[in-house]
């Protein structure tokens, strides 16, 4: 029975050592393997949203009035605010990953906390938007039952529920990603506080950072397509 040596990544003062998993040759191979795997996962995320985007472009091309009328019901200030919130969180996440790479634990935790708060802020804004749409009956598919003047607004457009089917599906899937991202970032703050992530072992912060940037990336396209329907 032969075992390889226990390979550790360099651990700065005050951090926990990371032991390289036994099936990897060295820390570098471990890091690049896990990163390639994560990029492939992100590619599947692109395809997941890509299908809905393709459907959006087709139906938008066929029923432009429905989409313009639907988009007018959304609040541009709310959407813009959420765009700024997500861009800010993406920046603080990038800074958090940088702090981790430099073994600056306090800064890393600070940036992760701001990212988490921004994610929470995004969901609060979304909550206000969602409740207003539910109140007005601007719901997807067969749940569509616009009240009062909303019924009149949509009286003369074809397939009036079409835009809001896309709105709820797209922002819904995106919102689930935001919630999962918040759970992941919370885990980073918890484990990071114990000193698990540093210059010698930054992969978890790096990868969850990439995931968070994808969430931002999707919103960059959702915002103009839903709130500023061209």
């Amino acid at each position: 029975m032969s075992h390889g040596p226990i390979v550790q990544t360099p651990t700065p003062e005050g951090f926990r050592p990371h032991v390289v998993a036994h099936h990897f040759h060295d820390a570098n191979q471990e890091f690049h393997s896990v990163k390639l795997g994560f990029w492939l996962f992100l590619a599947t995320e692109v395809m997941l949203f890509g299908g809905v985007f393709a459907a959006y472009f087709i139906f938008h091309g066929q029923y432009p009035e429905t989409f313009v009328k639907g988009g007018e019901q959304l609040s541009v200030p709310m959407g813009s605010l959420n765009t700024v919130i997500l861009l800010t969180s993406s920046w603080t996440m990038a800074m958090g990953v940088r702090a981790c790479q430099l073994s600056q634990k306090k800064q890393m935790l600070g940036f992760l906390w701001v990212t988490l708060l921004c994610a929470g802020g995004f969901l609060v804004v979304k909550y206000f938007e969602y409740t207003a749409k539910i109140e007005h009956g601007l719901l997807p598919g067969s749940f569509w039952h616009p009240h009062g003047h909303y019924a009149e607004e949509f009286a003369n457009v074809e397939w009036p529920n079409l835009f809001f089917s896309f709105y709820w599906t797209m922002t819904g899937i995106h919102g689930v990603h935001v919630i999962l991202g918040m759970l992941a970032i919370s885990w980073l703050i918890w484990q990071g506080g114990k000193g698990r992530f540093h210059s010698g072992f930054s992969a978890p912060v790096d990868l969850i950072g990439l995931y968070w940037h994808i969430v931002d990336l999707i919103w960059i396209f959702l915002f103009p397509l839903l709130y500023l329907v061209p």
Binding site: I6, M95, L102
Partner: peptide, 22 residues
């Protein structure tokens, strides 16, 4: 390396971007 010996691996290379660029 002997069995059970702890090695410190210095080969981890990841690019660190400047805060100004971000």
């Amino acid at each position: 390396a002997e069995h059970g010996e702890v090695q410190i691996d210095k080969s981890l290379h990841a690019h660190v971007c400047s805060a100004g660029t971000f």
